[in-house]
């Protein structure tokens, strides 16, 4: 049982969810949007987070869709990682999510949960950064699309009351040659030491990495030369210098694979 009590709501539409959040926030009821809930529950249990109301978004139809519109691939924020992988609509994202946590938890963690939660790695962000994804956000009865690149370094990514409805990527780009490798310290089921994703478009490779800093980032030759070692993660998983070494190695591997 969580060590604090809260209310639970199950809205059926975006507008219901949005207005409920507004109302609860006005009454200082500390509402949160509840997707997979794995982080809210695990952090709540150890006293790292509290909330007064959980608004379960999994019954909101727009958040549960996986669509191929012909031009775009659309994945709802409350789609779970397993569903993303099984749909095969976005192979690189599928490969990434299959290495997040474990198979069973992938039945619970949602796309939005991985992108917006407190855990710093946000590996699902990497393919979205590489493909210049758009994030559709619902707030106060209207939706807007924002480029993920304009969002990903904000802390928090979304403001209170904003709900991640879906991500959209150019369908053609999902077919570009891609690379993914997650390097861990030793045990396979673990946070990344370095997760590298890369996409090749017109003989040009773009890289995105999790595990280098306390946020995912896009990397290129320039930024690789200018890595500030003091910003690089240094912990029980890996020293900062080893992380940089592994990153360079993975970039080398990606380059080799994508040009072979």
């Amino acid at each position: 049982m969580l060590p604090f009590d809260f209310c639970y709501y199950l809205p059926r539409s975006l507008s219901q969810a949005g207005s409920l959040f507004e109302k609860l926030q006005k009454n200082s009821a500390k509402p949160v949007f509840f997707g997979g809930g794995t982080e809210l529950i695990s952090r709540g249990r150890v006293g790292n987070i509290t909330f007064g109301a959980a608004i379960d978004v999994k019954s909101i139809h727009e958040l549960r869709q996986i669509k191929d519109t012909g031009k775009e691939i659309v994945i709802g924020g409350a789609v779970c990682l397993r569903e993303i992988a099984e749909s095969n609509v976005f192979p690189l994202l599928g490969a990434v999510v299959k290495r997040i946590a474990d198979n069973t938890i992938q039945n619970k963690i949602t796309l939005a949960g991985n992108l917006l939660g407190g855990i710093i790695y946000r590996e699902a962000m990497l393919p979205l950064l590489l493909l210049d994804a758009k994030v559709v956000i619902y707030e106060k009865n209207s939706t807007k699309a924002v480029g993920i690149k304009d969002l990903y370094l904000k802390t928090p990514l979304l403001n209170e009351g904003q709900l991640l409805v879906e991500i959209r990527v150019d369908k053609q780009k999902t077919c570009l040659p891609w690379f993914h490798n997650k390097v861990v310290k030793s045990e396979k089921i673990d946070y990344p030491l370095i997760t590298l994703c890369a996409v090749k478009e017109n003989s040009c490779i773009k890289y995105a990495v999790s595990g280098l800093y306390n946020h995912p980032c896009i990397i290129d030759k320039e930024s690789l030369k200018n890595i500030d070692i003091n910003q690089v993660l240094d912990d029980h998983i890996s020293s900062a210098s080893y992380r940089v070494h592994i990153l360079k190695q993975q970039i080398q591997n990606a380059h080799k694979e994508l040009f072979s």
Binding site: Y8, T38, I41, S42, D56, K58, T104, I105, N107, K108
Partner: peptide, 16 residues
């Protein structure tokens, strides 16, 4: 199992 898929019940609210 929830709807035939494995779920970790420690990270699932009963109401879900």
């Amino acid at each position: 199992l929830i709807n035939s898929y494995p779920i970790k019940s420690c990270l699932t609210l009963a109401l879900e």
